[in-house]
Structure formats: C-alpha cells, structure tokens
Design a protein around this nucleic acid. Sequence first.
DNA 1: GAGGCGCCATCAGGATTTCCGATGGCCCGC
DNA 2: GCGGGCCATCGGAAATCCTGATGGCGCCTC
Lengths: 302, 302
Amino acid sequence: MELYHLRTFVTVAEEGHLTRASERLFTSQPAVSAHIKALEEELGVPLFDRTPRGMQLTAAGKQLLTGARQTLAAASAFQQQARGLQDELIGTVRIGLNTDARFLRLIALQSAVAEAHPQVSLELMAGYTGANLPALRAGKLDASFISGEMDDPAIRSWILCEEELAVAAPTAWRERLAAPDVPMLAEQPWVFTTEDCSHYGVMRALFESHCCSPRKAVLAHQEDALAAMVEGGIGLGIMRLDVVEAGEREGRLHRVPMPLPSVSLRIACLAQREGDPLIQAVLGSLGQVWGVDIVERSAASA
Amino acid sequence: MELYHLRTFVTVAEEGHLTRASERLFTSQPAVSAHIKALEEELGVPLFDRTPRGMQLTAAGKQLLTGARQTLAAASAFQQQARGLQDELIGTVRIGLNTDARFLRLIALQSAVAEAHPQVSLELMAGYTGANLPALRAGKLDASFISGEMDDPAIRSWILCEEELAVAAPTAWRERLAAPDVPMLAEQPWVFTTEDCSHYGVMRALFESHCCSPRKAVLAHQEDALAAMVEGGIGLGIMRLDVVEAGEREGRLHRVPMPLPSVSLRIACLAQREGDPLIQAVLGSLGQVWGVDIVERSAASA
DNA sequence: GAGGCGCCATCAGGATTTCCGATGGCCCGC
DNA sequence: GCGGGCCATCGGAAATCCTGATGGCGCCTC
C-alpha cells in the first residue's frame, strides 16, 4: 500500500464515480480502478460496492475513510514541515482565478513572488468561484480567488478588495432603461451566471427583495461569455462596475442606473494548509500587491 | 513521495548505514540510496550528511523524523483497522524464536492458529532474545519469544512460563564439581552467551553476589553451540533445566548442584501493535496453548 | 422488448519506475 | 601506499503503472 492508493481511495469515496475521480487525480479510469482493486486485495476488505450508478462505500469503507485521510494528512504535514526547512522555498502554487488577469493584478503578483521566492512558481488555473471552491477542497488548487461570502470553516480566506457591481445592458436598450425600477428589470431577459457564482446571489437578492423573478434568457459560465451575450443584445447581466464603464466608454454596453451591493474579492486556501510555507509565500505577496494586511500564521507550526 | 520513501528514511536514520538499512528493508543498497536521493530532491531538503562512516542525519532530517514516523504510524493503524474489519482474518505473522521449537510448543501453536484463523500464516524466524528485541522494534518481527525481564514501555509482553535453569558441566567434571561453591565455579572456564541473553544476566548475578567473575573460555551465540561446547568439555554453561536433565539422562552432560533463579519466558510485541487483530490472533492461540490468561485489548480499537 | 447510454472491469501493449549487480570515488586506518 | 568501508552512479533487467480499446452489466427510454 502506498500513498497514491490512499489518495485514490479518498477521491473515489468523495466522487462516488471512477471517471470523475480519475479526472481529479489526473490519471485514467482503468488506473483508478486498478488502485482500488489492489488496495482492497491488500487490505482483505471490500471498500466499495459497484453499482450501475457508481461506487458506493461499504460499511468498512466508511470506517476506513478517516484513517486514510489521517494518513494523507500526516504525509501532507510532513511535506509542509519539510518546506519550512528548505534553505530556499521551492515549489509550485496552483491558484484558481475567477476573473480577468488584469483585475486580479496577476502580473504584479507574479513579480512579487518571483522576487521574494525565486524558486517558487505559480500555476494560474482559469475558473470561477463556483468551481474553485470544490477544487480547493479536493486539493486540486493550493489557493484560489473567490468572490462573495465565505462561511465554510475548512476554508480560510482574506478580503483583497470590494468588487463594485453594475447592471449591464445592450446599448440599444439605453432609452427604455433610462430610469428602470426593479420589477421592470425583472421583465427583461437576463443572462444568468451559475448559481454558485457570487453575481448570481446579488441578482437573486435584488429581485427577491421586490418579490419578483428575472427571466432567464441564457446561462453563461464565464464572464467573457456573459459579456458577449449582453453586448449582443441577448439580455441584461451583472458585471463588475469597471468592466461596464469601460464597455460604455467603448460604446459596447450601457450601464443601467440601478445600485447594487458590492461583493468581496477574496483569496482562499484550505484552513489546514494555512501554515504551509508555499501558501504563506503567496499570501505575503498578495498582501503586498493589494496593500492588505493578510494576517500570517505564527511560525509555531514550523 | 510514497510510504516506501518514508520507511527507508526512518530505517536509514535508525541504522546510520545504507547497507544495514537495506538488509532490514529486504532490498539492495543502491535502491536505498535512490530512495533517499529521491526524497531529498522532492522535499528540497538534505536529510543526511554523507560521511565515510555512514549516514548522519542533518538538523532538518532530525526534525522531519517525527513526522515521517507519524505518517508511517497512521498508515500502519489504517492497515490494522482494516484487518479488524476483515470478514476473516488474513495475513502473516512473523514470530521470533529464542529457543528450540519443542519447548516453545510451536506445533501446538501452529495448529491452534490454523484452526482459529485458517487464513493466517506463521513465519517462524530463528533468533535469540538479544536479536529479537531490536528486530521487533525495527518492524522486522511482529511478535517474539523472549526470556528475562522486560521494562521497555514500547514493548508489551506476557509471561508464558518460568524457565528453570541449571548449570551444566561436561560429564568428566562430575567428581570435582560434586559440591561446589560459587567461588569454585568462578575458577572454571565458562561458555558465555551474548550479554543481551537472559542467561548471561543470571550468570552475572550469581557471581556478582559473591564478588567474583567467571572465566570466559568461549562465547556462543546459539544454545546449540553452547550445548556442544559444554558437552565437548570446553567449560560450564547455563542451560534450561529440562535440557540439562535430558543431557544427564543421556550421559552427555552433568548437572552441577547449584540452584539458580528462573527466568520468565515471554511473548512480546510492540505496544502500539497490541490491538492489531493479527497479533491478537496469535496471542489468543498462545494463551490457549500455554494455558495462560493473556489479557486482550478490548474491541474498542476495532 | 430492444436499443442506447453510463459505469466499471479487463486486456494488451507501451511507458515509466524501480531494482540489482557491478563498479567507481572518496575517506580512513594500518 | 594499500586495502577496506561506505555511498553514488551506471546500464540493463524486472516490475509496476498507465492508457486506449473494449466488454459486460444494469438502467432508462422509446
């Protein structure tokens, strides 16, 4: 039995599905199947029941899951402690993005990290808030930008800034939306985001406070797609104020005069990895880039 | 990084020597060297200083040793918990011996284990008390017969019986040793055992109580060798009473009339493995074979 | 009832990793 | 200066792991 068996066990347990687990583990479905088979044979215990709908933990599998996680956690803590002992920090930090690189000041971040820790590299992975959180939890990301509230105790986050939001409309709708009220906006078609996006929550809150619901014309997973839909006249959408203003200046969008609350842009990581020197390195550089006091863990964990 | 890297790390740390570590790990010296190299590269931390006399832990290596042991302990506990969940116990138990198979009732033990746990096999490894304890600590043995006192808290042991001991002499020395006192015995040549053998302690205690020391004619590592030396007229030796009496009946030995304290024959295992179902299986069978109440761990650990 | 889809297990072949025997380099002791 | 002990490296072999393809089974829909 090796650690990769345990990683596979835990991932399959969480996904309940070999193919999805293989994607998370960056390997193939037959490889994952073989890992589980080998582990079950070595332990002499069936860990999963195979069903047409996927893999279901057996009672024994459920009981063993905690021990598997503890073993992986101990190994992770060992590696983390080793990083704290490196003469010079070495490693790669995978960061999930949720909006455009310029807004996230990624060039400045890259420079700050490269200067402070020459042997640390960043791996920037496109995504959105709703995808980044599960990826964080799954260990696929080391840190991630997210927007909105965060109340999961397993996730630690720090506010970088407040994102001002605005309602964007196609320029052709300028006159009929000169002074709209909320019910009127609800009558318009909307470009939705996924429900796990903070912008969706803001939109929902807007209409719920006036007891009405917006009409969904289309759903866009990415901000670029949403912007394209709005510019193309498909419907209204919620976007960052600076993006809407830039679009308005360039004649591509119209900013609807409707005040919206802001959402917090945050950087997040797993609480248990907060003390990891690699995470600390990135948090330190982010604090520097955004002029924010990101409270660092004491060196006691080192 | 996988568990075998950590096992190698810990073993090399304990041995301070790649070749000895490779023997304990049942692999080759180049393989062990490669494990350490790979681990150091992955962690970005030198774990050992290479010296002409062997491998010496660096400061970082010393700090990381605990974490490595914890990870291995967690993995071991996981496997142990899995064994407790097996429908039928499966596995191999490596038992260190320290005297002859007949005295240790190994045939009865084998039968008892086979009956109670058909899929558990025993692997009986010749040895002696002094070799068995380090082998236990090193994970090379799962359980071990040992003789004498045991005060290491990391080792758990149960008394099976008291070994009566006697002083054996060559038959030709019968008359001159008809009624010897201790100083007289000290004047004779002796066949020593290794210092980590319980018989050695008994011999030492005998003479120290009379402020004298025995003369060492030869040192024998194994009981067979010691018996051969005594029978061959090389010197006196301490042996089990039943063996001396059998030798006397067969005209091969003379029992010197000198009372000795007995030593306890014990079965031992690592304290942390006491709850292991495989260990429990063997302890249960030993209790049955020796008619001894070996207090078993509650099922709470299962 | 049949066909298609989803899911896991297996297979054969290729790729990668690991191991091993041989050997070299360095240091130390005689 | 030489021999021995110890670790690192090398080349080749062995073992392990992965992958694409495919099959079997169950379920769902038509």
